[in-house]
Simulated scan of single mutants.
Amino acid sequence: MKIGITFKLFLFVLLACAAVVVVQGAAIRFVMERGFLGYLNQQSRIRMEEVVPRLGEAYDVRGSWDFLRSDFREWVDLVLPFLREAGRDPAPRLASSDQTGALARMGLLDEKMRRVVGNPDIDASSFRIPIVVEGRTVGWVAMVPFEGGAAEE
């Protein structure tokens, strides 16, 4: 049985299309991992920077992180930025949306890099920002990065 030119041409075009699809898929994956997920991690880092001053003040007032070990609600109150309108306390609303899931991926490490509260997956390898009180690092706000994203330290 002899293979005709039409069939050979069809196979060539089919293989060329398959190669284009594979290359395009690899390029999209690369762009998503380095671009979009990196952007989301950057937005999460901005969210962490907003929390650092509030945690520093809370540590300064209480002198340790023990109050957070025993009261998860206190942690939530410190990391969720609420806006309350004057005279209208019953319905607080979030100051900004958290579409990156940063608050669920965030946690607190003490000065010895031990988890205090927050996401159970945080550790010394998570990207983090130091909490400095009176010139001394008393803890770290840490976050589990999106998978494949460029973690910053």
Rank of each mutant, 00 (worst) to 15 (best):
residue 63 G to K: 10
residue 56 G to C: 04
residue 66 D to Y: 08
residue 65 W to M: 03
residue 119 N to G: 04
residue 127 F to I: 00
residue 43 Q to C: 08
residue 68 L to V: 03
residue 122 I to Q: 01
residue 62 R to C: 01
residue 142 A to I: 04
residue 119 N to L: 00
residue 37 L to R: 15
residue 125 S to M: 09
residue 64 S to N: 14
residue 5 I to H: 11
residue 58 A to T: 03
residue 120 P to M: 07
residue 64 S to E: 10
residue 9 L to Y: 07
residue 127 F to C: 02
residue 46 I to A: 15
residue 20 V to Q: 11
residue 112 K to I: 01
residue 145 P to T: 01
residue 135 G to H: 02
residue 145 P to Y: 04
residue 95 A to H: 04
residue 61 V to A: 08
residue 6 T to R: 13
residue 55 L to N: 04
residue 152 E to C: 01
residue 125 S to W: 09
residue 116 V to R: 00
residue 88 R to E: 13
residue 50 E to Y: 14
residue 102 A to N: 06
residue 40 L to E: 07
residue 3 I to D: 00
residue 150 A to L: 13
residue 18 A to Y: 03
residue 93 R to L: 06
residue 110 D to L: 05
residue 115 R to Y: 03
residue 13 V to W: 11
residue 14 L to F: 15
residue 62 R to W: 06
residue 115 R to Q: 02
residue 87 G to Y: 12
residue 113 M to G: 00
residue 61 V to N: 01
residue 94 L to Q: 11
residue 23 V to Y: 13
residue 57 E to Q: 12
residue 138 V to W: 07
residue 146 F to N: 02
residue 146 F to R: 12
residue 10 F to L: 08
residue 146 F to Y: 12
residue 100 T to A: 11
residue 114 R to P: 00
residue 89 D to P: 02
residue 49 E to P: 02
residue 44 S to K: 09
residue 58 A to L: 02
residue 27 A to H: 10
residue 84 R to I: 15
residue 142 A to W: 05
residue 94 L to S: 10
residue 47 R to E: 13
residue 135 G to T: 09
residue 59 Y to E: 02
residue 140 W to P: 02
residue 98 D to S: 09
residue 151 A to N: 07
residue 52 V to R: 03
residue 28 I to M: 03
residue 47 R to C: 04
residue 87 G to V: 04
residue 113 M to S: 05
residue 136 R to K: 14
residue 127 F to K: 01
residue 55 L to P: 07
residue 103 L to R: 15
residue 99 Q to H: 09
residue 108 L to Q: 02
residue 30 F to H: 13
residue 104 A to V: 08
residue 105 R to Q: 06
residue 47 R to L: 09
residue 100 T to S: 13
